[in-house]
């Protein structure tokens, strides 16, 4: 709550979460872990991994438990891979078609995130356009916005959370924001670079 010069008590307009983090195929990279069951026959592992390479997955780890048997007499295999194109359903379909039994699938979205503060006439310089310029890149998006407007004609302040596929793309998104902010006379306050002394709170 902020008191304006005119003595009017105006509450902060808080628009946190007007956009929620949503999964857009091709925007985020994800880490997928899969538990599979293979028949004890030569060539089965290759057959199980082939759909992964077909759909561009980056295999990070394969655990082939030769010495174990499932109650059905199959060999349990765990694979972990990174996927940046959202083709998980295609991989699952192809595996099942090839007769590979999928026991379970776990996935975790991976993305880089940055919080920045903007100060200036944020709303009157078309906030929608500022956000659109980042969202329209296809590799980054504004996922949260909180804005505080103390009084008419006074500069507003906003905190903006931007997500992107990786650090490089996040850097590009920040470049766009810096350029837009310069055009609209907004002050951008960015975080210091992460280092070994940064403590996660």
């Amino acid at each position: 709550m902020l008191n304006t010069d005119k003595g009017v008590n105006k509450s902060n307009f808080n628009a946190t979460g007007i956009k929620c983090l949503k999964y857009i195929p091709g925007i985020y990279s994800m880490i997928v872990s899969m538990d599979l069951e293979l028949k004890d026959r030569p060539g089965q592992l290759v057959q199980a991994l082939k759909p992964l390479s077909t759909f561009g997955a980056n295999i990070m780890s394969v655990l082939h438990h030769h010495d174990q048997r499932t109650p059905r007499g199959a060999i349990p295999v765990q694979v972990v891979f990174q996927l940046t194109n959202g083709k998980l359903n295609d991989i699952i379909a192809e595996l099942e078609e090839g007769g590979v039994r999928i026991v379970c699938v776990g996935k975790k979205l991976m993305y880089e995130e940055v919080t920045v503060i903007l100060i200036g006439h944020i709303v009157h310089s078309d906030m929608g356009d500022t956000i659109d310029q980042i969202d329209s890149t296809g590799f980054a998006e504004v996922v949260s916005l909180s804005i505080s407007m103390p009084a008419i004609n006074e500069p507003s302040s906003a905190s903006l959370v931007i997500n992107a596929v990786d650090m490089a793309q996040l850097g590009k998104a920040l470049d766009i924001l810096r350029r837009v902010a310069l055009e609209k006379d907004l002050l951008v306050i960015e975080p210091i670079e992460k280092d070994q002394l940064s403590v996660k709170t």
Partner: peptide, 17 residues
Amino acid sequence: RITPEALTLAGDEGMVI
């Protein structure tokens, strides 16, 4: 150009300016 509101918003994220 720093406003008290910007400092509050930063504080919400566990940051200072």
